[in-house]
Simulated scan of single mutants.
Amino acid sequence: MSVESIDNQALAFAALAQCAKLANDVARQGVIDNDLWQVCVSSLVCTNPNSVMDIYAPASDLASGLDTLIKQLSDSGEGRSIEITKYIAGIVSLSRKLMRNDNAMAVMSQRIDQVKRQLHHFTINDDAVISNFASIYSDIVSPLGAKINVTGTPTHLQQLLNQKKIRTLLLAGVRAAILWQQVGGKRRHLFFSRKAYVNSAKQQLTQF
């Protein structure tokens, strides 16, 4: 899939930013917005999209991600989070390594198909489904590159379910990062097209 435009790239990057922000929320606060969680995680089982909007529709579901994009990429730096920046960079790096590894991609596809079958009996918020997503990240994606060290409040990070939610969100972030690259996003755009991304995100937010 490749529908290259700044708006599509900004929307896909907003999905990545939303995943990174939610991972940070779980790590620091131990809580997560259920609707935003579902938007991110549901993307993992949308495996044959024709467009960005096939995965993230309505686009208003990514309002939090668009807002995070603006904060992370604006020249002012107001509201920027060092942790979210770190997670985004790590996720993009892992996604690039995953895309170059045909075997890992094939195994991940098989594991995602297993989860899709599991969803005939469970909801996407079920602990068993979250565990499977988390194990896909731990088994297949994380070993491909530098480990993403998530920092936060120890009491929240020590909870097993929170650990699994964070890994699931990182996996969803990798999915969004792959999508971002499929619609033409490149790491250099985060430097040279920052203003265009921010302007697109602001414009898209006014349409909700």
Rank of each mutant, 00 (worst) to 15 (best):
R175E: 02
V107A: 10
K116W: 01
T151H: 09
A89P: 01
T155W: 02
G173Q: 02
G145I: 07
L161A: 10
N162S: 00
P143S: 05
M108Q: 09
A177H: 02
I112C: 01
L160T: 13
R187E: 15
V150Y: 05
Q163H: 10
D126Y: 07
N162P: 03
R188C: 04
I166E: 00
I82F: 06
E78C: 10
I91Q: 09
P143N: 06
M108K: 04
V129F: 11
T155R: 13
I130G: 04
I166P: 03
Q114P: 02
I91R: 05
R117W: 11
R188Q: 13
L119A: 03
N149V: 09
D102T: 11
L160N: 14
V107N: 12
I148K: 03
Q158A: 14
H121I: 01
K147A: 00
G77S: 10
G184L: 11
N125K: 15
T85W: 06
K165T: 00
A134H: 01
D75P: 12
D139Q: 04
T123R: 04
D102P: 00
G77D: 06
N125C: 11
H121S: 13
G77H: 00
A146G: 14
A176Q: 08
L161D: 15
R96C: 07
I82T: 15
I178M: 12
T168R: 10
R187V: 15
H121F: 13
L169G: 05
Q118D: 15
V115E: 02
N101S: 12
G184D: 13
D102K: 13
T85D: 12
R175T: 04
R80P: 03
I148Y: 08
M99Q: 15
R187F: 12
T85Q: 14
H121Y: 14
L160C: 09
Q163C: 06
G185H: 08
M105H: 09
T85R: 12
G185T: 06
N103C: 08
S131R: 05
S138D: 08
T153G: 04
M99G: 11
H156W: 11
R96G: 11
K165A: 06
A176F: 08
R175D: 01
N103T: 09
A176H: 00
S95L: 05
S142C: 10
A104Q: 06
D126F: 01
S109L: 08
K147I: 08
I91L: 00
I130M: 00
D102S: 12
R80M: 06
A146H: 11
I148H: 11
S142H: 00
D126I: 07
N101A: 03
L179F: 04
